[in-house]
């Protein structure tokens, strides 16, 4: 396990030694990039420019939360919703989707970086990212995808020797808000991988609302390692004597130590019923709710 009292000053020293001029970091609101942002801010102060890109694929209330926590750190919030959604039009294959989001991310980020004349880049890569990208299971959008048109003097990866739970320990030691320290993993491509097939504005709205409901019902009561909703496709339903051809929403809730293996939570029937009733009741176009009981392996935690 990481010794935070040694790790933190050492990491700050390393950043100080490497960073020159304006240094940027892409802040996602997850624990990894948040920890890097705090370490870097302590190292180089106002030379750090954290950039948060609103991809339109974020969870409900995410952008506001980021503003609240990092607002006093030069934070640049970029609204790129349309660009991301446009880049996803017509794409059905999961890996293609990940690539499209990753690519757009890099382009938007690159433009912003050129604008602030950044010389260095900080990335929140953690140890498993490096190894996993190598195996070809899923591509990680922050590994291997770097801005091509900027010659950064240095790319700094302050936590690339740490595992997720170690990053959380550092986050606690840095006194980041509890909700960031213990934030559930959220995929880089955002809600786009919680939609089977093509990503449309309508499906994003459905999946965003459904995710919020699932989190509200499960997070504080059952402490899942990860929980979310995904939109699978359309099915027939009936609401108040009217036929509805509406969305089928899958609920996922898993227990895990590190995300590498996982099992579906054994949720009480009443809880599942309440989630089903809320999703179909509060989202007019949702017709059906299913609970995914598959462990990992053979399934993965996310759907795409």
């Amino acid at each position: 396990m990481v010794k935070t009292e040694k790790f933190i000053p050492k990491a700050i020293e390393k950043i100080k030694a490497k960073a020159q001029g304006k240094t940027i970091i892409a802040l996602s609101g997850g624990v990894d990039s948040s920890v890097c942002a705090i370490l870097a801010h302590r190292a180089i102060g106002d030379n750090l420019i954290p950039i948060y890109i609103d991809t339109g694929l974020m969870r409900k209330g995410e952008t506001e939360r980021i503003k609240g926590i990092f607002g006093d750190m030069n934070l640049q919030i970029i609204d790129a919703k349309d660009r991301f959604l446009d880049s996803l039009v017509g794409i059905k294959d999961p890996e293609e989707k990940r690539k499209a989001v990753g690519e757009t991310f890099i382009r938007v980020f690159e433009e912003e970086a050129l604008g602030v004349e950044a010389e260095c880049l900080i990335q929140g890569t953690i140890y498993p990212d490096k190894i996993e990208s190598d195996g070809g299971i899923k591509s990680h959008h922050n590994v291997g995808g770097l801005p091509e048109h900027i010659n950064f003097k240095h790319i700094i990866e302050p936590i690339d020797d740490l595992y997720k739970d170690e990053v959380r320990e550092v986050a606690h030691a840095l006194e980041l808000p509890e909700e960031i320290c213990e934030r559930m993993p959220f995929p880089g491509p955002g809600l786009s991988v919680r939609i089977i097939g093509e990503v449309t504005r309508e499906k994003i709205e459905v999946v965003r609302e459904a995710n919020a409901i699932v989190e509200e019902e499960l997070l504080e009561q059952f402490f899942p390692w990860q929980t979310f909703a995904a939109v699978l496709g359309k099915g027939t339903g009936v609401k108040g004597d009217l036929r509805v051809h509406g969305w089928i929403v899958a609920v996922r809730a898993v227990g895990s130590r590190d995300g590498m293996t996982a099992e579906a939570l054994d949720l009480p029937w009443d809880t599942l019923r309440k989630i089903s009733s809320r999703i179909t009741g509060e989202i007019p176009t949702a017709a059906r709710v299913v609970y995914d009981i598959t462990p990992k392996p053979p399934a993965t935690i996310e759907f795409e």
Binding site: M1, Y127, P128, I131, E132, D134, G135, G136, I137, Y163, D258, M260
Partner: peptide, 24 residues
């Protein structure tokens, strides 16, 4: 020895947490 398995880094971690000197 990394054979490109998704759990490779978990082996590394387990070995490291058991206080052995290890690398992939």
């Amino acid at each position: 020895i990394n054979n490109h398995g998704q759990f490779c880094h978990l082996i590394h971690r387990t070995v490291r947490d058991l206080d052995m000197d290890t690398s992939i």
